[in-house]
Design a protein around this nucleic acid. Structure first.
Length: 906
DNA sequence: GGCATGCATGGAT
DNA sequence: CATCCATGCATGC
């Protein structure tokens, strides 16, 4: 992609279009569509021409998939790539509409907001000018937020939208920029582009977001209407808290009295401004703007999609927000927005700039509220109230500590809480999800020429919610009451970041963010008979949590998911650098017992995957490895262990959930998660918990990796080969080794069999016989699977060697430094061993005292341990990303690994 | 000494 | 580099 960037390159550029017949032709490059990186595709003249004429896809992608027809005019449009993403609009009712039709169907000849005096025609006073765009929004505001029912469909707490919105806010807060933008031209875009180029980071690098961003930016959406209503009148220094701010902007704003029943959510300040600006005409916008700068395009289109009281049909405008589209319509008003919206809200609410102009900058995604329908329902109860999620915050150690001070993000505080001019602040009434009302002192401390906002006296509330560091509190507002509501989300209930994707978070609310994820999670939860284990409680716990975490952390193939399309772009608390917890607080999360329970080996999770009921998984091939793909979220099944008897018969062992007895089952049995003896249809004699176990535990222990004693955690061990499953790669290797080596005794070989080992399936797992018997790949096999395994292991081992050498070098260096330091400082105080050449052994300790200890030969073991961050090293932390392929368990290096490496190197 | 308070510091963003 | 914010810590009760 870099080769195609717009950055000047000395060498002849290559046309970005891979289908270009003359990719290396000389000549200037033209900027085509915006890439996900924010840059533009450099096209040769010919390709650009095709692109410019809108025939690019027809020319180059005619054979590609993704062609659909406009629902209105029937024109064929390519919906399968980024190039044409701006050419169509997704319709609410399904299908697409070409841009021209969409425009026709939505744009009103006379924008409804023309009934109001244009802010540009009748500009506000200079002192207010900074807010005039905001006032425009206010004009658009209905008397009540409820007028924006469509809002949630379009502008949910999506980073994409918010970012666009933010940029709009950013731009339209600045009349000069606005004007420049309106006047069009590349010059006016630069700033935005620069800002836009920052997007990938802000958006969490979700590729889909990039695409979606462009799509939105290209007009398939409108600006956030949420911000246009539901706003308290902030009263500086008001002493009676929220109640005083319960009234809406319109009540105080004379302009609002002119508001009409605007119901189209697609009204925006941008739209209004542009609409009313005689200079603004979308049609007059240079095509370069439309094409090259999504933000300006968005603005332009916002003008093209003005809201109107007659607004034909708000749904005409693409509403691709996954959650709101997927979910049932909320009877209650849901006004999700982010901090940017909030800033705008605050602006609108105040009708004046914020005290601190910096507050107008963006709110960090980590504070974006991720509140769900159910949560909203719970908050609002049966009332017909309007809920506006404001922000959320993951509790730090300080927040959750006994001091009782909850540090509020500055921008959130300034945007959503009453303005305070005195450090003492004012009392703030907050209601929790159960309806209980708390009063906190909302105040600030002067800090570095700024303010640090805190809520004081939160300890009782935090405790009543049983929150701890790492948990998240959410702040919402209920209108028209204007109540501030504090919800929470336990980090412990699910993976710290993924709770939002499960339907049943262990918290005051349920949470969910992404539509399809939400559905998946719902299905998942519906399918999972989650019950506590009797025998192996911790193991079960880990599985239970894995149930919830699996679908977010693992993709359908069972591999841990990187930041995929389903990942929240606004990962906020946990996405950016993993957490908003500081380095110290990160430890909190890691050491949190519940979080530890989330750790499950890759294989454990993989092994537990079952296709959803009544669904046959499809097989996709990735890197030559066939992977099952489920159209619905897979469910978790029960772990079983496969063995063979001496006659070569294969079977599996499963443990009853109720009595913990082990039952022998046929190899093709697929067990549900909560399998019990009564489900044992294969062995009627042992279909009851009262039936004796076929083999003693000792006998079983020789067969399968069960622990006869107290087991803290189920670990899968392939004892015969001394391989401990550590991570996906090792597992892969183990499987390959088991398959290739064939030297392993089969009778005592509990393999890690594919959950659904199907005849004919050639996936990496299925090609390996459960017992090590059957056809095997030769060492010289060059099939994709073998090559992939070998290649990966080569890489793995190289990395490992590199790391090892780095570690050694580091240790030696530290040792040297340490010795030098000791000599310099006080040679006479050196401990006796300090002068002992034998003490020059490796030590990673940085303290002399520890160094002494470490010189003890007995510490060798601990030295090894230091390379492992956790006693659970053999288990995958679901928080990590497998792609890194780092820090494999040293144990996995045993025998088989080296063998494979040798094989791979040979 | 224990606790509450408010400011300062420094790592993170 | 500026700002934010988690937390340390001095101070006072």
């Amino acid at each position: 992609m870099s080769s195609s960037s717009s950055a000047p390159a000395p060498a002849p550029k290559i046309c970005f279009n891979s289908h270009c017949k003359e990719p290396k032709s000389e000549g200037p490059r033209r900027k085509g569509w915006r890439l996900r990186s924010g840059e533009f595709a450099d096209l040769c003249d010919r390709c650009f021409s095709a692109y410019d004429q809108g025939s690019f896809c027809e020319t180059f992608h005619s054979d590609a998939a993704g062609w659909r027809s406009c629902e209105t005019c029937g024109k064929r449009l390519h919906c399968g790539c980024i190039v044409s993403v701006s050419a169509f609009v997704l319709l609410d009712a399904g299908g697409i509409e070409c841009f021209a039709c969409a425009r026709k169907s939505v744009v009103m000849p006379q924008a409804p907001n023309q009934m109001w005096p244009s802010p540009l025609v009748k500009p506000p006073q200079i002192s207010e000018r900074k807010d005039f765009a905001i006032k425009s929004w206010k004009q658009m505001t209905g008397p009540f937020p409820g007028q924006w029912r469509q809002a949630s469909h379009i502008w949910n707490a999506s980073s994409l939208q918010s970012d666009l919105h933010q940029r709009l806010s950013y731009e339209f807060d600045r009349p000069t920029n606005t004007e420049r933008m309106i006047s069009g031209g590349r010059n006016s875009i630069t700033a935005q582009e620069k800002k836009f180029e920052d997007l990938p980071e802000k958006l969490g690098s979700s590729s889909l977001n990039h695409v979606a961003r462009d799509r939105y930016a290209n007009g398939n959406t409108c600006l956030d209407p949420v911000s246009a209503f539901n706003i308290y009148q902030r009263e500086e220094g008001s002493a009676d808290g929220l109640q005083d701010r319960g009234h809406l902007v319109g009540e105080n704003d004379p302009l609002s009295t002119r508001k009409a029943g605007i119901s189209d959510p697609c009204s925006t300040s941008a739209a209004v401004n542009l609409e009313n600006n005689p200079n603004s005409s979308v049609n007059s916008l240079p095509s370069s703007i439309l094409k090259e700068d999504p933000s300006s395009l968005l603005i332009g289109l916002a003008a093209q999609f003005p809201s109107s009281n007659g607004a034909k049909d708000p749904s005409r405008v693409s509403t691709t927000h996954p959650q709101r589209q997927a979910g049932p319509p909320l009877s209650k008003q849901f006004c999700p927005h982010n901090g940017i919206d909030g800033e705008l809200q605050a602006q609108m609410r105040n009708g004046r700039p914020r005290v601190d102009p910096r507050a107008r900058t963006q709110l960090l995604p980590r504070y974006w509220p991720r509140i769900t329908d159910q949560e909203l329902q719970q908050i609002s109860g049966d009332s017909n109230s309007v809920i506006t999620p404001l922000f959320e915050k993951m509790l730090s150690a300080s927040d959750a500590g006994r001091i009782g001070r909850l540090v509020l993000p500055k921008k959130c505080a300034e945007a959503y809480f009453p303005a305070i001019s005195q450090p003492e602040g004012l009392p703030l009434k907050v209601q929790d999800a159960s309806g209980k009302e708390w009063v906190f002192q909302f105040r600030f401390w002067p800090n570095n020429n700024s303010r640090m906002y805190v809520l004081e006296g939160v300890t009782p509330c935090i405790q009543s919610m049983q929150l701890q560091a790492g948990d998240t509190v959410t702040f919402s507002r209920i209108d028209p009451e204007g109540k501030l509501v504090m919800g929470f989300r336990k980090a412990s209930s699910v993976s710290a970041e993924q709770d939002t994707q499960t339907g049943k978070a262990g918290n005051g609310f349920s949470t969910s963010t992404d539509g399809h994820n939400k559905n998946s999670a719902t299905d998942l939860n519906a399918n999972l008979p989650l019950r506590p284990l009797k025998g192996n409680t911790e193991s079960r716990n880990s599985i239970n949590t894995a149930d919830q975490a699996t679908w977010s952390k693992f993709d359908r193939s069972g591999f841990i998911q990187k930041d995929g399309p389903t990942a929240r772009s606004s990962q906020g608390p946990t996405k950016r650098k993993g957490s908003n917890l500081g380095s110290k607080s990160k430890r909190l999360r890691m050491e949190n017992e519940d979080s530890m329970e989330l750790k499950v080996t890759w294989e454990e999770a993989q092994e537990l995957l079952r296709p959803p009921p009544n669904h046959v998984p499809t097989i996709v091939v990735i890197e030559g490895i066939e992977i099952e793909e489920y159209e619905e979220a897979p469910v978790l099944g029960k772990r079983t262990y496969f063995t063979s008897n001496q006659s070569g018969d294969n079977y599996q062992w499963a443990q009853c959930e109720d009595c913990s007895k082990w039952r022998k089952l046929p190899v093709d049995a697929t067990l549900p998660f909560g399998w019990t003896c009564s489900d044992n249809k294969w062995d009627p004699e042992r279909s009851s918990c009262s039936s004796a176990q076929e083999l003693s535990l000792e006998q079983l222990a020789n067969l399968i990796p069960i622990k006869t004693g107290a087991s803290k955690r189920s670990k899968v061990k392939v004892e015969a080969d001394n391989i401990e499953v550590s991570d996906g790669l090792d597992t892969l290797a183990n499987l390959a080794i088991l398959g290739e080596g064939g030297a392993l005794p089969t009778s005592s070989q509990p393999t890690t069999k594919h959950p659904r080992h199907r005849p004919g399936c050639t996936c990496i797992v299925c090609i390996q016989p459960p017992s090590g018997k059957g056809p095997k790949h030769k060492q010289t096999c060059t099939c994709n699977v073998c090559l992939t395994v070998k290649r990966r292991f080569r890489t793995l081992m190289l990395r490992r060697e590199k790391r090892q050498s780095e570690r050694e070098a580091e240790a030696a260096r530290k040792q040297q430094q340490q010795q030098q330091q000791q000599l310099i400082q006080s040679p006479e105080m050196l401990p006796p061993l300090g002068n002992d050449p034998s003490s020059a052994g490796p030590s990673v300790s940085s303290s002399p005292q520890k160094a002494v200890v470490n010189n003890d030969g007995a510490e060798e073991g601990s030295e090894c341990k230091k390379t492992s961050p956790s006693p659970l090293k053999a288990q995958i932390d679901l928080n990590i990303q497998p792609e890194r392929e780092e820090e494999p368990s040293p144990k996995a290096d045993a025998g088989g690994m080296m063998k494979l490496l040798r094989d791979a190197a040979s």
